[in-house]
Amino acid sequence: MAKKLALIASKGTLDWAYPPFILASTAAALDYEVSIFFTFYGLTLLKKDLSDLKVSPLGNPAMPMPLPLPNFVQMLPGMESIATMMMKQKIADKGVASIEDLRNACLESGVKFIACQMTVDLFDFKPADFIEGIEFAGAASFFEFAGESDVNLFI
């Protein structure tokens, strides 16, 4: 019987978009059955338009920067866009997959995506903003597959 992986994706930044999609696509390649429950900011990862995914150096002292910038510079308008642009360039230079590619790899290999209905309502998201082929459900549905999974991770 196939092993099962259950993930909760709760973060909506470009850097934190990677772990759920990398783990889910790899687990699927290893013949796991995979489900990801997207909640709160993680719902951003299910939108058709992924341009909301950004990375902010502000409040993240571990982020490698070409030159060290104090926080009061990092908070200036446009810094987030610049950091995001630099990160995307780096991702392309290093042969790291784009989030869109990894998400497609997940979908092609049968990873199940579940959007948290409560968060959708809370943030007034429109179902039309999301990609096709996802389910909308709540915590009980998460436990339906998490309860019988071999690996459960909250990201």
Binding site: S25, T26, G95, L102
Partner: peptide, 13 residues
């Protein structure tokens, strides 16, 4: 070639 984790595994699969 030139691809990083997890792409080689995904291509292999």
């Amino acid at each position: 070639s030139g691809l990083n984790c997890p792409l080689p595994i995904l291509r292999c699969k």
